[in-house]
Design a binder for these strands. Structure first.
Length: 267
DNA sequence: GCTAAATGTTGAT
DNA sequence: TCAACCTTTAGCT
């Protein structure tokens, strides 16, 4: 289940698995049968991630667009793929690898102009080299909308999801309900730079770990998810910094988590 | 084994 | 504001 780092990771893995050679595509479920037929037998030239959107560039200008949504997943393997089961939207089979896509919000082919329009409506992606942090700065520091809502708006910043939102706000001790325009340029740029660091680490490891080493419980072994974050899904549990109960409230349809004591920074 | 919730977005009401 | 998408997992029985 994906925020931007997951999609960039997929783009990288799929480039490695399928890039440069012919791919066979099918849609056993039937919902993407026409698209799969157009992809089938073409070589994959390039993969691309922008925010939470994944793109495959195939020979002949065929462009696949996938958005996993909340619970879309790819399962992958090598050798012969298993018998298709359940609602399998798209199966890709390369020389040695296969990938099965289930439950995506979007799986479609795009015309070049549609790709341009898609990318044009996305804000800067902290994981892209061409990121334009000034664009997000302008949107945020002029807005009356709460910073918690702005961070989930993909036209403001592309790739941030509910975990990074809650954790970023905590790490900077920012009250989620502050309007964007209450943030100084310096405050937002510190948050942006942190987002780049956090998401780059997420891309490298495949996990979201936002807890600073100093705040981690001293113990051996792999951190559980609950031990990797400050506030996300920790409602009612004590804040790792001050001990106050972590609160949760729905903001534009998503559960926000925050510490009412720590997150009162003067911006 | 069952239920609810989940790292998301769109489109109808 | 809410249902839909329709998978996976955590937490309960």
């Amino acid at each position: 289940m994906p925020e931007g780092h997951t999609i960039h990771r997929l783009a990288r893995a799929q480039r490695k698995s399928f890039g440069g050679h012919v791919v066979h595509a099918a849609s056993p479920q039937g919902r993407f049968a026409e698209g799969a037929a157009l992809i089938d037998g073409r070589a994959l030239r390039r993969t691309e991630a922008y925010g939470k959107h994944l793109l495959h560039h195939y020979d002949g200008g065929v462009l696949l667009h996938v958005h996993l949504g909340l619970y879309g997943t790819f399962s992958t393997g090598t050798g012969d793929p298993p018998q298709p089961r359940g609602a399998l939207r798209l199966r890709l089979v390369g020389n040695a690898n296969w990938a099965d896509l289930r439950g995506p919000t979007t799986c479609e082919l795009l015309e070049p102009a549609e790709r341009t329009a898609l990318l044009a409506r996305l804000g800067p992606d902290p994981l892209r080299r061409d990121r334009d942090s000034a664009a997000a700065l302008t949107r945020i520091t002029r807005s009356k909308t709460s910073i918690a809502a702005l961070l989930m708006d993909q036209t403001v910043v592309a790739g941030v999801g509910n975990v990074y939102r809650a954790e970023l706000l905590f790490r900077h001790r920012v009250d989620p309900y502050l309007p964007g325009r209450a943030l100084t340029d310096v405050r937002w740029m510190a948050m942006w730079d942190d987002l780049v660091v956090l998401m780059t680490a997420g891309l490298r490891t495949g996990r979201i770990v936002t807890l600073a080493a100093a705040d981690r419980p001293r113990q051996r072994g792999v951190l559980t998810r609950e031990q990797s974050v400050y506030v996300y899904r920790r409602a009612g549990l004590p804040c790792r910094v001050c001990g106050s109960a972590i609160r949760t409230e729905t903001v534009v349809g998503r559960n926000l988590y925050w510490c009412p004591t720590c997150q009162t920074a003067v911006v």
